[in-house]
Simulated assay, not measured.
Amino acid sequence: MSKIAFVFPGQGAQYVGMGKELYENNELARKEFDKLFSSLDFDLKTVMFEGPEEALKETKNTQPAIVSMSLILTKLLEEKGIKADFVAGHSVGEYAAFGAAGYLSIDEAVKLTSARGKFMNDVAVKVNGGMAAIIGLDSDKIVETLKTVEGIVEAVNFNEPKQTVIAGQKDAIERACVALKEAGARRAMPLAVSGPFHSSLMQEAGEKLKEEAEKYNFQMTDVKLVANTTAEVLQNVDEIKEEIYKQSFGPVRWVETIQKLKAEGVTQIYEIGPGKVLAGLIKKIDKEIQVKNIEKLEDFENIM
């Protein structure tokens, strides 16, 4: 029996106006958005729908914006009778996966995401770190090469076989980019992000999230979630909390996550949320898996 997975994008997929079309043209979406917006202590609605772009790019705003849109789209998809057997999310997309699996209510998933964005913002400001995308070099070679680079720099996002993101101290990133090009990378591009996300420099954010997670009511359901840091299925609430802690300063094993979904019998994946980044990555990991994007109302018309 073939299985369905829902996957959710992470930071970088956002754009000003995301979700506005849903809000203005779908009653259920408007109701859910209003409920979410009123549960937060800042004006996410204006930032999402009107911008400015600089405000939306701030981690504390970006993360709840992406997760809110993803979860409301999921609700609309489920209204059409499509349910997930498995879920996974890329980086902050994993928080949308917690909500989509029913491990948290939509409101709680967004509230926890909002806390994550704030904690990561606070730590990123202090540590002077960055990230860079390395194209055209095997991840094993990248990991080996980074061992020779002075300073803190780590492979953190294993996005597809020939694209890995590194993170760490800014000067170490610069040295790493030179070393990785010498090792055969086609490109080494610094990314316009506000911090060294998923690297060990972010551990303080993980400690704060660990405390925060204790305030939430998690429950297991029959939907299985493949975790970023291990590419294994979470089995219980303790494992969910451990993933929340470790994921903020641990790797996103996206290649292995997709391979795990395939091994579990997934043949169809819905990418739910802004953009089509994950669809592109999935095609490079496994061409056999069918991927559909759910981002706008028109995407619901031909999904059955």
Rank of each mutant, 00 (worst) to 15 (best):
S2I: 10
A5S: 13
P9Y: 12
G10A: 07
Q11N: 10
G12A: 08
M18A: 10
M18D: 08
Y23C: 08
L28M: 06
A29Y: 00
K35A: 07
F37G: 08
S39A: 12
S39V: 03
S39L: 02
L44W: 05
K45M: 14
K45T: 10
F49W: 11
E50F: 13
E50P: 05
G51K: 08
K60H: 15
P64Y: 13
P64D: 11
S68E: 05
S68C: 07
I72C: 01
K75G: 02
D85P: 11
F86T: 06
G93I: 12
E94T: 03
Y95I: 02
A97I: 10
G99S: 02
L104D: 07
S105K: 12
E108Q: 12
K111T: 13
A115C: 13
A115P: 03
G117D: 07
K118R: 13
M120V: 03
M120K: 05
N121D: 11
N121P: 00
V125S: 10
K126R: 02
N128C: 01
N128V: 02
M131L: 02
L137G: 03
D140W: 05
V143D: 09
E144V: 01
T145G: 02
K147A: 04
V149S: 00
G151H: 03
G151Y: 00
E154Y: 05
V156M: 09
P161C: 05
A172M: 00
R175C: 00
R175I: 00
G184Q: 10
R187T: 04
M189C: 04
G195F: 08
G195H: 10
P196F: 07
H198F: 11
S199H: 08
E204P: 01
E211M: 15
N217T: 14
Q219N: 09
M220A: 11
N228M: 02
V233P: 15
L234T: 15
V237K: 10
D238C: 08
I240Q: 03
K241Y: 07
I244W: 00
Q247Y: 15
S248K: 06
F249S: 06
P251L: 06
L261T: 09
G273Y: 04
G275N: 10
A279R: 14
K283E: 15
K283F: 08
K287M: 14
I289D: 07
V291N: 09
K292Y: 14
N293C: 13
K296W: 02
D299W: 11
N302I: 02
M304E: 14
